[in-house]
Nucleic acid binder design. Structure first.
Lengths: 229, 229
DNA sequence: CATCTGTTTTTTGGATCCAATTTGCAATAT
DNA sequence: ATATTGCAAATTGGATCCAAAAAACAGATG
């Protein structure tokens, strides 16, 4: 886990820095699901007392990224297949609508930023950065919707499932398909075809969800078999 | 603000009790928007130190119910008309879908609970309880959707806007209309007409949003005039 | 060998204390 | 009268300390 205060903005409070670092570490999958987050260990890692660490953990729990039991500490939440499916279903409901709202008022600069991030996503060799670039691509297209509340719920949803996606994208043709779908969405946006762009976005998310659930079903079944035999 | 630990569950930690009490106080409108929440004052109110109070405030901030500036403390967030509109628009997108998903699998007991809360809502004289009863009515109908994530986002959305609704329901015919709409939704659910129930729910939420925005526009314009003259 | 029981070690939730920052106010200058 | 400067009070973020609960462990018992 990297500790870089400068990333977050100058003079952020310690708890904010820790919160961001932990959130990043969890969404990136650097700390595994079920892993315990010990206050004391994290405090030493950042050279602070446990107080700001506890504040960061409180925030993470409120976001659903860790779960806590009294006197038993925080562990990284592990989502069931059903819960992951639900998050994708949710995104497939929200995101097309946000894009639909954004298209009539979308600026050329926002569109250009979208194209830029689509290209960056397609040519990024480091799988650790795919999640962020994918998010920035979609965010650029959603931004002009002027719906901050929707966008915050989308970010929260992505934070929940991002860490599961990476292995799937690496080990399947998910990356290639995502790129093609991004291009198609961009084309529809350029044509200002809101219905088409929304439909493509919905399919993009549902397809990603299906791939991920399928991948996780297989790999979790595999793990079970390994443990058993 | 009432302090009753027993309500929340036995042996909840102090911070949880405080969080629930503050959340309730904010959603009920007992503390006004813009009002400062001083850690020391709240701590004395609950006979605890400021530490659990800070944890509660952190949670509230994460939920968007208060906003905080470094060294300046927490204040109850005040939503602009546009932000309130957005929350209703969000609910009008999510809730019909959840109801649609719930109907095919809805149990008779869930339906009975829905009818029960609709009746309780209709006959409740204390406006302070309308928000909760309305929420319970809809929640009963949504529950069998088996979509906990959707439901948590709905609850978060309601927490944001509930406190604005009460005055509007008291001072207009909103209460009567809400009752009629609840009955219509219930009838559609009884008939297992998912499309109709979803459409009625969408209209119910959009109508409530329009009434509230209209009401707030008038009353906020009124306040401005008073301040000016 | 597995299991139960009592004890030690970890770990957490909270209290108290301290330093940094902001805010309020009074005295002064314009 | 208004603006400005310089404390003093209020308030917050964080450190350190303490008690309660849970986990880990060791020895006793079947």
């Amino acid at each position: 886990m990297k500790v870089k205060a400068t990333d977050i903005g100058q003079m952020a409070s310690a708890s904010e820095v820790i919160f961001e670092a932990l959130r990043e570490a969890i969404t990136q999958g650097e700390v595994k699901e079920g892993e315990a987050l010990r206050q004391d260990r994290i405090a030493r890692m950042f050279n602070v007392s446990r107080i700001p660490v506890r504040e960061a953990l409180t925030r993470l729990e409120e976001q659903g990224l860790v779960s806590t039991q009294r006197y038993r500490g925080a562990v990284v939440s592990s989502l069931s297949i059903a819960e992951i499916e639900e998050v994708f279903e949710f995104r497939a409901l929200i995101e097309p609508e946000v894009l639909r709202l954004a298209i009539p008022r979308m600026s050329e600069t926002a569109l250009a930023r979208g194209a830029e991030f689509a290209a960056a996503f397609a040519s990024e060799p480091d799988s650790a950065r795919w999640g962020e670039l994918n998010r920035r691509f979609h965010y650029a297209l959603y931004e002009d919707s002027a719906r901050p509340y929707y966008l915050s719920t989308i970010n929260a949803a992505l934070d929940r499932v991002d860490r599961y996606s990476r292995a799937q994208l690496v080990l399947t043709d998910g990356m290639a398909r995502a790129q093609r779908e991004h291009e198609a969405i961009l084309a529809a946006v350029v044509a200002r075809d809101a219905d088409q762009a929304a439909a493509l976005t919905r399919e993009h998310i549902l397809a990603a969800g299906r791939s991920l659930v399928d991948f996780l079903s297989r790999s979790r079944a595999g793990e079970k078999a390994v443990r058993a035999g």
